[in-house]
Amino acid sequence: MTLDQLGDDIVALAREYNRTSPFEVYRRAKDLLGIAQSLLERTQVPRQRERGYLAAGQSAAVLSAICFDLGSLPAAVSLSRTAALYGQVIEHGPLQAYAHGALAFLAFWGGRPADSVRLVRTAQQFGGLGDTARTRLFAIEGRAHAHLRDQAAAERAVRSTLDQSTGSRDDLHDGVGGEFGFPRDRVAMSNSTTYLLLGDADGAEEAADQALQLLSAKPEDQRPLLISTQAHVDLARARLLRGELDGVQAALEPAFNVPTEWRGAGTLERMAAVRVGLCRPEFHGAAEAIALGERIEEFTAAASAQRLGGTPPLAIEP
């Protein structure tokens, strides 16, 4: 009964992740991980231990994701390693792939894109993965190659995110879904960031626009605020590459209105990249650039109290 309830609670949290206050997600995920670890200490029944390890791995994965959003990169890395270990114990391919994909993502955030490529390649080798899992890993791979300025490999990975259509599914990325899922709007947002790293303003704007269109087609209460905010900032960044200050401001306006608790690490680092871009020589002395820069600094300062840790390196380099 306890394992059944624990499993239900983890599924609910993963599916409510993008509609729940980040600190509430953090609290609940931490509690669920503690319960799962406690249950593992209390049973030696093989089937119960297998379910306990799966619950612990899923809880650790969700907790890792929210620690990243709240700005604690070291905690996120440690928890993803924990999730990978639990997945290894029970030989659960999708959980191991998700955790290694998260470690690959965290590696390029930590300034180690070559390590990111290695980790994502490991993740792609696990068995039992469905189309969603493979799409997510190709999106991460594209970002890693873009950090390495390998345009051909990055673009090849982006194309692969759009080509996974075998109809295969797995019990984590598809069965649980939510934060473990990777829907088309998230694919488009991630690909937009990849294009930004490559300096491709047109590709970035097209992908960001696609993400926002897909999100706008969803009921308002089902739109993931973290993803939509990042897509808006990516759109602004693409326009900034072309020197379109009016377009930058229009794209950023929805992001400026996001409550402080929803300004996750991905959003803050994207905003920081826009702030750096506004300091380019061609914008020197422009009143609109100065005003936008000040608003970004205020936006970031208001969010700083909502973070668990320090600021990691920029996700999008100037």
Rank of each mutant, 00 (worst) to 15 (best):
H173K: 02
A303N: 09
A76G: 07
T20E: 00
A56D: 01
T267P: 02
A238C: 06
P281D: 14
R49N: 06
Y86A: 06
A188G: 05
L314E: 08
Q125M: 05
G264K: 04
L198T: 09
A255E: 01
T2D: 13
L85S: 13
G71A: 06
L240E: 01
A152P: 01
A123N: 02
L172F: 11
E253P: 01
Q124R: 15
P312R: 02
H284F: 08
P281V: 08
Q306S: 12
E220C: 04
S80R: 03
S78N: 12
M271A: 15
E179G: 01
S304E: 15
T43W: 03
I140Q: 13
A207W: 07
A36C: 11
R118V: 11
R143G: 01
G277S: 09
L198S: 06
T82K: 08
A146G: 13
R242M: 05
A139C: 01
A208W: 00
G128F: 03
V248H: 03
E261T: 10
L292M: 12
M1Y: 08
Q213S: 15
V187W: 04
E206I: 10
T135K: 09
P254W: 10
Q249V: 08
L70H: 01
R275F: 07
P313M: 04
H92V: 07
A236D: 00
L241K: 02
L40P: 03
D209K: 07
R184K: 09
T122N: 08
V120H: 01
S190T: 14
A139V: 02
V25W: 09
D200Y: 07
K30H: 15
A97Y: 04
R27C: 03
T20P: 11
R275S: 15
L172G: 05
Y17S: 02
A231N: 12
F283I: 06
L32M: 03
G110N: 13
L106A: 04
A14K: 00
V233S: 05
G277V: 12
E288Y: 00
Q5R: 10
A14Q: 07
P219T: 11
W262V: 12
G57D: 10
A84V: 03
R81K: 13
Q249G: 13
P318Y: 06
H92N: 12
L278A: 09
L308D: 03
E220H: 08
V248W: 00
P113W: 07
E282A: 15
S192T: 03
N18L: 10
A157T: 03
L245V: 00
P74M: 09
D171C: 04
R121I: 00
T82D: 12
L73K: 04
A250D: 14
P183E: 12
Q210T: 15
L212E: 01
R184W: 07
A272W: 09
F68I: 04
G34D: 08
Q164T: 06
G309D: 03
V158I: 15
I316F: 10
S192V: 05
R149T: 11
V89Y: 07
G181P: 02
L225E: 14
A36E: 10
A289S: 04
A291G: 06
P318H: 04
D115G: 08
R242N: 14
P312I: 05
A153T: 07
I35E: 11
